[in-house]
Design a protein around this nucleic acid. Structure first.
Lengths: 239, 239
DNA sequence: CCTTACTGAGTACGCCGTTCGCAGTCATCA
DNA sequence: TGATGACTGCGAACGGCGTACTCAGTAAGG
């Protein structure tokens, strides 16, 4: 067995004895991330991934105990490679930078929104990022519990908003329609809701709100909401 | 076919002609919700659900075009049955009540955190709830776009936080371990991270923060974060 | 150089969502 | 009333999934 009932991060990649593996965790992870990004996470099966890598499906289990572990590797990989933000010393600028970076990364890798939640998967890159974010609010006179609340609150907003942004796009993809077609399928029903006369505010949303698919709208909504969240967090600081 | 390329909400439940169906959408949905709550959403397959209902698996496709539609029904059902909050006229109290109600509902039905995201699935109950939440901030002098930002920001926080709260619990469930056992599997790795000496703040989180599985801690984190978000949102109000 | 430990992978098991075709049922209309 | 035709329930089957087993082949340690 390549496994050892432990966490993958402390399991050695290569065994002490025996022939050299023909692949590496990194290669496998990179291929899986590429597939997930271009064809959706559901297209990543152990079989399709094995084909992509030119090996047999069962061979992948020499590198990974379960598919879940592969996904943990994927999340940690993009946390290291694709998440960009700057910690310069001003807590608000730093948290804003982190938030925008995490949102951008999540939009590039939609599957992260769901599979990257919580403190479940503390791979080395994830741990490093977590440490960096905490450092942005260290030394401000907060207890560690308060710092946790700040980070959790910000993270919850980012992940929740990204999930909302992605949900339409993902369900359009899953149904095989493009986003325009998908909206046209929904339109008659929304129209009938409105015609009923209840839902006056929903009606205003549909008619008066800025083009619901203005590509800037969601980005603006994120940025505006983010500043409000940061406003709120600033109330936690002493002084 | 029972289908018609449309949205399920405007598709009649019973056909005009032919024998009466032996089930109803409501029965099917209720059984699926019960299964998902007690055994996890992954345990809900068309086959197991059919067994539970005493029918053949293929029969369910007389009521639902695809499994996704069943999940849409499930989400809308709990939005109607299990989501409780009060709109009394004070916007902050009302949004707090909504937030706590949505969190509590999500903890009772963990699968909602993922499958209820976005404006993808606007079933009648979901639409009614949406309308109610908007009404809580109507008449405060906000543009509809600003109202949207408020609701989206709050919703993002709630969904993101619920997702974080559930992630450990869910991954423990998936691995077949109970939560205590699962933590003991993780412990050596976290210990080794800490021993490395990098991650001083992570170390403080592990050692100094209140018992990470104090059942109240997550609830407190939610309530504290919620008040900060509400603080931030109050900055959007005119005057 | 032999022993030993490990690698690659074909095969198989038991699931899954979904489709097809058909027998049985019932509302409608001649 | 009886025939028609739409609709229901569903057994069987298809293609795909995660994963376990088994075993031949290979390379390092003694």
């Amino acid at each position: 067995m390549s496994s050892g009932r432990g966490v993958i991060w402390e399991r050695p990649e290569r065994a002490a004895r025996g022939p050299a593996p023909s692949l590496s965790r990194e290669e496998i992870t990179a291929a899986a991330v590429a597939m997930a990004d271009t064809q959706g996470i559901d297209a990543v099966s152990m079989r399709t991934l094995a084909v992509q890598l030119g090996v047999g499906a069962a061979s992948l289990y020499r590198y990974v105990d379960r598919k879940d572990e592969l996904i943990d590797l994927m999340v940690d990989a993009v946390m290291g490679d694709d998440l960009q933000f700057n910690i310069r010393g001003d807590w608000r600028d730093d948290l804003r930078s982190f938030a925008r970076g995490l949102r951008a990364m999540t939009l590039r890798h939609p599957w992260v929104a769901v599979h990257g939640a919580g403190r479940r998967n503390l791979g080395p890159n994830t741990a490093r990022r977590y440490e960096q974010v905490l450092s942005a609010i260290d030394g401000l006179g907060l207890e560690i519990d308060e710092m946790l609340v700040m980070v959790e609150t910000l993270d919850a907003f980012i992940r929740g908003h990204s999930l909302d942004e992605l949900s339409e796009q993902e369900s359009a993809r899953r149904s095989g329609l493009d986003q325009e077609e998908w909206m046209q399928v929904q339109a008659p029903y929304v129209q009938s809701l409105i015609n009923g006369g209840h839902y006056p505010l929903l009606t205003r949303v549909v008619f008066d709100a800025r083009s619901p698919h203005d590509p800037h709208r969601l980005k603006n909504s994120f940025d505006l909401g983010l500043e409000r969240v940061l406003d709120g967090l600033s109330a936690m600081l002493p002084g």
